[in-house]
Design a protein around this nucleic acid. Structure first.
Lengths: 226, 226
DNA sequence: GCAGATTATGTCAGTCGCTGACATTCGGCA
DNA sequence: TGCCGAATGTCAGCGACTGACATAATCTGC
């Protein structure tokens, strides 16, 4: 809103900083679409909200909506997508001394915590993402789309892990296996979250994730009956 | 076609064995739909096949198709659904001495092997299921639907494991975690299968699954660089 | 066998998600 | 100011899916 840059085409360091009016307006309508969709979804449910409603709430045509988002699912998952990207960023900057599993666990906890401390409310807030997760579970197509996104993220995790440890993911199966296991533990934690319906915020989610990670060893080894 | 039962309402043991003409015809058209869909999908791709085509190939109305299958994805995944059910059956009959992880691994191997040895070809054959898996990967909505099915299966696995070991899955997280890990290892193996494009049949898939399971321990523990 | 209750199926109209094609408007830039 | 390209609107259309109602087929008791 408050533009602090007087000259549109200014000093060299302005390159990429002030993206120009056109770019700003695009980002603006994109954010507006996400926000409007979010409000409508939480208000009246995902399936009972039509794309036309979202579009006309922002006063753009339906066609324009589909130029920003490939489908209705995408606008719903846009908020979570940011969080996922941030997690990847965290993973890339973990110290090399950590084991791969430690690095993954530390990254996801850091990602949740940072995002939780950052914006408290608004369209991109973490509480919004948590509300979204509840919604996902009872919208079949949305859940499906979300799972697909998760698997795409897993592929990235495989690549990052392989780079980090300096090995070829096609020869060594460990990156793929660990990425898959990591993703599945997270999903189990998420399911637990939506099922138990604990009202705590991001910190509640973090402890849930930690609890599930702690069960990884016990779940895999030996008999369970004492 | 050749009716060997002279009396429609026959002996007591006929109850549930001969489901009546109506029920038989239903099963018949259902099978025909699955088969026709399968042929069309593999021939011209999933997205380029319309429901109308499938329906008219079996000479029923589109509306009837949707009374058998909730959506286009479902008819594509119908074949794999049988295999999944059989796996659950295998898991239920594993000896109690095995650890949960051993039981899961043995069940999936047995399921693939039995189904591989059973019907060599036909609409419900295992080779069909393998062909399907290739198709799933490049049909976004289909992949999404498949992933959703997988998570539903995981919930069942959680229940079976909890019963088997006699504990409450809401208190003890191990069933949920192990089920999730198991599912993720399988998905990694499946991805590997579709990526490497090894032409071997069910046995190839089995060895792939075993190889991935063998990497579970190594992937989770310690550093990877020697 | 035969009415009458059930149940599967067909037909039709309609909604919604999504896409291609073309015209129009608006920001970027000389 | 005037041109270029990008963003948007409009329109027509396809395909997945659904509700409502009519029709035809099975099943049931007699």
């Amino acid at each position: 809103m408050a533009a602090h840059t007087p000259h549109p085409t200014g000093t060299p360091e302005d390159l990429g900083r002030t993206p120009g009016l056109r770019e700003r307006k695009k980002q603006q309508t994109r954010d507006a679409l996400v926000q409007a969709a979010h409000v409508l979804f939480l208000g009246q449910g995902f399936s009972r909200t039509t794309v036309d409603e979202i579009a006309s709430a922002v006063d753009v045509s339906q066609r324009t909506f589909f130029r920003y988002f490939a489908n209705k699912d995408e606008v719903a998952l846009a908020v979570m997508a940011e969080a996922e990207d941030y997690f990847i960023e965290c993973l890339r900057h973990r110290p090399a001394e950590e084991t791969p599993l430690q690095a993954l666990r530390a990254s996801i906890v850091k990602a949740w915590r940072d995002l939780g401390n950052a914006r408290e409310s608004g369209p991109g807030s973490i509480t919004s993402a948590l509300e979204l997760m509840r919604m996902i579970e009872d919208a079949p197509t949305l859940l499906a789309a979300h799972l697909r996104r998760v698997t795409e993220q897993e592929r990235i995790v495989v690549r990052v892990l392989a780079e980090r440890e300096g090995l070829d993911p096609r020869e060594d199966l460990r990156p793929a296996v660990l990425a898959a296991v990591f993703g599945s533990v997270l999903r189990a934690a998420h399911l637990s979250w939506t099922a138990d319906r604990e009202p705590e915020g991001p910190e509640g989610m973090i402890t849930l994730i930690e609890r599930h990670f702690d069960q990884l060893g016990p779940a895999l080894t030996g008999h369970w009956r004492t």
